[in-house]
Structures are given as C-alpha cells and as structure tokens.
Simulated assay, not measured.
Amino acid sequence: MFKKYIVNLTNNVRKISIVLALSLSGTFAVPGFCQDKPAAIKPLVTDLFTADPSAHVFNGKIFIYPSHDIEANVPQDDEGGHFNMRDYHVYSMDSPTGKVTDHGVVLDLKDIPWAGRQLWAPDAAFKNGTYYLYFPAKDKQDVFHIGVATSKSPTGPFKPQPEPIPGSYSIDPAVFTDLDGTSYMYFGGIWGGQLQRWHTGKYEKSLSTDLGKGHENEPALSAKVVKMSKDMLSFDEPLRDVQIVDENGKPILAGDKDRRFFEGAWMHKFNNKYYFSYSTGDTHFLCYAEGSSPYGPFTYKGVIMKPVEGWTTHHSIVDFKGKWYIYYHDAALSGKTHLRNIKVRELLREKDGAIRTIEP
C-alpha cells in the first residue's frame, strides 16, 4: 500500500512538473499527456467586446474588421435581438503576435442613411486605390441588407453609400478577390440572419428561423455567391447558391446540422483549391469544403474548429508571410454569448492541404 502511494505521488509530481514546464514554454506537446493541445489563447482586445473578426493583410500589416459587442439590455431570442451593435472599430497588427492598435470608430450607425439597427459582422476589401467596408444592417423595416462604405485608408473613417447594395439581403458578407483580380461576395445566415425568409426569391416575414420540421431530408439552405462589379459597389450578376456536397456528390441536407451551412462564410485559396469555410451555428462547429471554382460546388472535408465558449462561431483565415492564421472569437472574458472577444492562432495543414482540426 505504501509502495503504491509513493508511485502515485511520484507520478503526480511528474505531471505537475510537466504542466509547469509547458505553461512556461507556452505549448503542450507531451506524448500521452496533453498532446497537441496549445496553451490558452489570450484575447487580442480586452477593453472592448469584439467579435466576428475579418482579417486582411494590407501594405504588409494585418488589419482586423470586427463587430463591436455592447450590452444593449435586449432580451435574448433566436432572432439575435440582443446582438444590437452600433458601430465598427478597426484594429491593426504588425504581426499575428504583435501589439494591437485600435484606430477607433470608423463607421457609426447614425451615419448610415438607410440603416435602422444591428451592425453585424463586416468584411473589407481593397481595389481601385480604395478600401471597401461591407456590412449587414437592418433597414427601417427591420430587414437585413448589405451596405458598403469607402475610404482611402484601411483605418477609415469609412463613408457609407446612401442605399444598400441592390439585390442584397441577409448577413455576413465576405469578399474574396482571386488572382485574376475578380472579386466575389459570399453572404448569408439563417435564423436571425433571415436567409430562410428569401428562399422563394422574395421576403417572407413569417419564417422566423429555419424552414421548420419536415424539411430535414431536403438540401440545406445555401449561402450565396456573386461576382462584384468593377467599382465594388454593386453585384455584377444574379446571385448563385453555394452548394456544399458530401463525398458522394450529394447535397448536404438540412437535418445534418453538424455539416450544413448556418452563417459566417469565408473563402480562401490554397494550392489552387478554393476553401469555403463556415459556421454550423447551433451545433457550434467551424467547417470547410473544397472546390475547383469560386462558385463551387464544394465538397465537405471536415471540421476546422470545435465549439468555443459561447454560442456563436465566426472566423476569417489569412496568409501572413507564408503562414496561415485563423481569427475567431469566444466568450471567455464575459461568459455571456453576446459579449465576445477576438483571438488568433496558427492554422495548420496536412501535406495534402487538409486543415487540422483545432481544439479551442
């Protein structure tokens, strides 16, 4: 009995020593103990609540365009009314591990003529010597559309167009520019993002969340993709569905909630493959699918990140000096689903380009 006690004590001391050593080094990689599990990731911003980080490299620096969470004292519901954001800040970093600079408010709800409330997840792009900030907002009738604002600087301030982009709706714009200079916008989100209300081509206010029971064996609702006009202020063609299929080429079904699209689209290109990544929403996964065209179809490949603390997951993926990074958010600082904080970590791949699943 005494010998067994000594062995257990020795093992516990060994484990404690390993944990201390690993915490000092900032990583966990001991076989059989906490293999491949990284140390806790610190929030990039702690004086404000920020979420939905859209990261881009402009002029050799990283610029982050997140939403700005506030305590709006709005009851929580499936429509996301408690996410009542009112402005945008821009942040910059010289490197993914560098100091974060807050460039202040670059666009405010009160300066957008058509908008009524809820400035949700934005994105940014650069072309024609101009920086473009794309953002979803509800109009005065409480219908989401996507607006655009412009600036000569990546840090703003941004001047909004007087009306939303014609033909736009729903949320979460993400703009990808291919090597040939053509830009595409991906957007959409179900439930509070209202994508389901447009499934017939016109707005149906009565559809409050998904399309409801009885549709589980039908193809899931699709994100939308559209080529942007040369001036980046409008769409250059009709909207198309972003089709996600399984390994057999069959559409992912609405009832497959671990793989179907919910919101938070992002596009990046690696080794001539197009990687469409997205959030599954109420099952809290970040997933990805691969295609040979920016229009798809995209074949489901797996999970990028397992659930974080908090209800929502929203991300961006960016290449910085030959390494890939994922920007995302969780609710570790507040413990509240609507008060989030942005983080970054390296995105690792297998030799064939497959993305390694992250345990947050």
Rank of each mutant, 00 (worst) to 15 (best):
V242R: 04
M185W: 08
L44Y: 05
H82A: 11
S183Q: 05
G181M: 09
P294T: 00
V7D: 06
D69C: 05
D256S: 09
D256I: 07
F144Y: 13
F28K: 06
P160D: 04
M267H: 01
H199D: 09
T177K: 14
D352Q: 09
Y327D: 03
S151D: 10
T313M: 08
E309R: 11
I41L: 11
T280A: 05
A39E: 06
Y5A: 15
T313E: 14
I244S: 05
D241T: 04
T177M: 12
I64G: 10
D36I: 09
F2R: 14
D256R: 12
I16W: 13
Y278F: 02
I317T: 14
P307W: 06
G212P: 11
D241Y: 04
Y288D: 00
T10F: 11
H215F: 14
K343Q: 09
T97C: 04
F298K: 00
A39F: 07
G255S: 13
S229H: 06
I18D: 10
G192I: 10
I252L: 01
R340T: 08
G129N: 02
A29D: 15
K110F: 08
H145Y: 04
H315G: 06
R86K: 14
Y325N: 03
D241V: 06
W191R: 01
A220W: 00
T280Y: 05
Q76M: 12
D246F: 05
S316A: 11
L347V: 03
F176E: 03
K336Q: 11
F235S: 00
W324Q: 01
G129C: 02
M1N: 12
V100L: 03
S153G: 04
M85K: 06
Y300E: 02
K127S: 11
S234Q: 05
N59C: 12
D123M: 01
S23M: 13
Y131F: 14
D52Q: 09
A149F: 00
K42G: 06
V245Y: 08
F176N: 02
H338E: 05
F63S: 04
K301H: 09
R259Y: 09
L348P: 00
Q194S: 08
I317C: 05
Y184L: 00
V344M: 10
S292D: 15
A55R: 04
G104Q: 03
N272K: 15
K323C: 01
I165A: 04
S206N: 10
H338K: 07
F144V: 00
P75S: 07
A220P: 03
G167M: 09
H56E: 13
W324N: 05
S206T: 06
G129M: 07
A289T: 08
V175R: 05
Y131W: 05
K15W: 12
L119E: 01
T337E: 09
D178Y: 02
N248V: 01
V57Q: 10
S25K: 15
W191A: 07
V175P: 04
G264M: 01
G264R: 03
T209L: 11
S25H: 12
E71D: 14
F276W: 08
V143H: 04
Y5C: 10
G32P: 12
Y327P: 00
L107F: 03
M232S: 07
N8S: 15
P53E: 11
T27I: 13
F63W: 13
P96T: 02
F262T: 08
A21Y: 14
L339M: 14
F135C: 00
K202Q: 13
F270A: 06
S292K: 15
I64S: 08
S183F: 08
F187Q: 00
K306T: 15
T312N: 09
I190A: 02
T130A: 00
